[in-house]
């Protein structure tokens, strides 16, 4: 009797405390997800009421060149930028983790650029990539390389953005650094006693230990990179020749420039599905490769 009254009381407090989230979840997550699902079957310009068109949007989408192009652009960017940034940041973390002089300085110096983010970073790199007065071509000119038009050239624009993304390796570096420092030194010692060289002990001890960190960064990095918007909005407007027409930029243009909220909702829904599938796939695949301390058997 007493027990159940207490349970009721607890339940009341529970719901009281989580009520802000509950309200938010319903109004700002659940409702939008369902609503955009509904809109995705309509034609909707927000001035007139939504018109049910069944699978019309989805059918159109598969014939829409811009849709496929935006996927190509986004995937190209993601598969190059995310893994390379990860590897670069791991390498830097390993170097900085050595007991060499100036560690603190290097750590700060490599991280510092990551604080210039968002629009500031986009503007800075638009300027760095300026074909005629920018830093990048100036440096290339020392090696006798002719000026490249970077963000103004459809062949280079996406790679310019990839290069720009490397500038943010500092974040990943810090995370790996923390991971590396978390590798128990007794394990490394043991490896050393067993006669393992630095490379082998890295492969057999360090790498498995930081693999969850790697996985975490991979997922976060991919999800982030599926949602690139700032660069496209601020500096390239998706061009030249749609070469930086990122997926989210495509959603933005369709909804807020072309007023096709129904069509854009279909795009948004596919993004949601893609994010879920990719996350799930990485988690699944990782079960085989990622080492979790204390629980690989489970």
């Amino acid at each position: 009797m007493k027990q159940s009254r207490r349970r009721i009381r607890e339940g009341r407090y529970f719901y009281l405390f989580i009520s802000p989230w509950l309200v938010g979840f319903i109004a700002l997550a659940l409702f939008p997800v369902l609503a955009s699902f509904y809109y995705s079957f309509t034609e909707y310009d927000i001035i007139h009421a939504p018109q049910w068109i069944g699978l019309g949007n989805y059918r159109e989408l598969f014939r829409d060149e811009q849709f496929w192009n935006s996927i190509r652009v986004t995937v190209k960017y993601t598969v190059v930028s995310v893994p390379l940034t990860l590897v670069l940041s791991l390498l830097l973390a390993i170097l900085i983790n050595q007991k060499w002089p100036l560690r603190g300085f290097f750590r700060t110096a490599v991280y510092f650029p990551s604080m210039i983010s968002g629009v500031s970073m986009s503007l800075l790199w638009f300027w760095v990539f300026n074909p005629q007065a920018g830093l990048f071509n100036y440096v290339l000119s020392w090696f006798g390389i002719e000026p490249i038009h970077w963000l103004l050239d459809a062949k280079y624009a996406i790679w310019a953005l990839v290069i720009m993304s490397f500038w943010g390796v500092g974040t990943g570096m810090l995370i790996f650094l923390a991971g590396l420092q978390g590798v128990p030194s007794h394990l490394l010692e043991a490896a050393k006693l067993d006669g393992a060289g630095p490379l082998r002990s890295f492969r057999n001890v360090t790498l498995p230990m930081i693999s969850p960190v790697f996985l975490f960064q991979l997922i976060v990095g991919m999800i982030d990179s599926f949602q690139v918007f700032t660069q496209a909005y601020t500096i390239t407007q998706g061009g030249p020749s749609y070469s930086t027409w990122f997926y989210v930029y495509n959603i933005y243009v369709n909804a807020f420039k072309n007023f096709r909220y129904g069509y854009a909702s279909a795009l948004a829904w596919l993004l949601l599905v893609a994010v879920m599938v990719v996350t799930f796939a990485i988690m699944k695949a990782s079960n085989r490769y990622v080492y979790y301390e204390g629980g690989p058997s489970r």
């Binding site: 038009h149 103004l152 062949k155 020749s241 243009v253």
Partner: peptide
């Protein structure tokens, strides 16, 4: 017109860049 214009801007970009 806005969608038409967008198309021209992007499709003509390689011509404007000399490619």
């Amino acid at each position: 017109y806005s969608q038409i214009n967008e198309l021209f801007i992007n499709e003509l970009a390689p011509v404007e860049n000399g490619d």
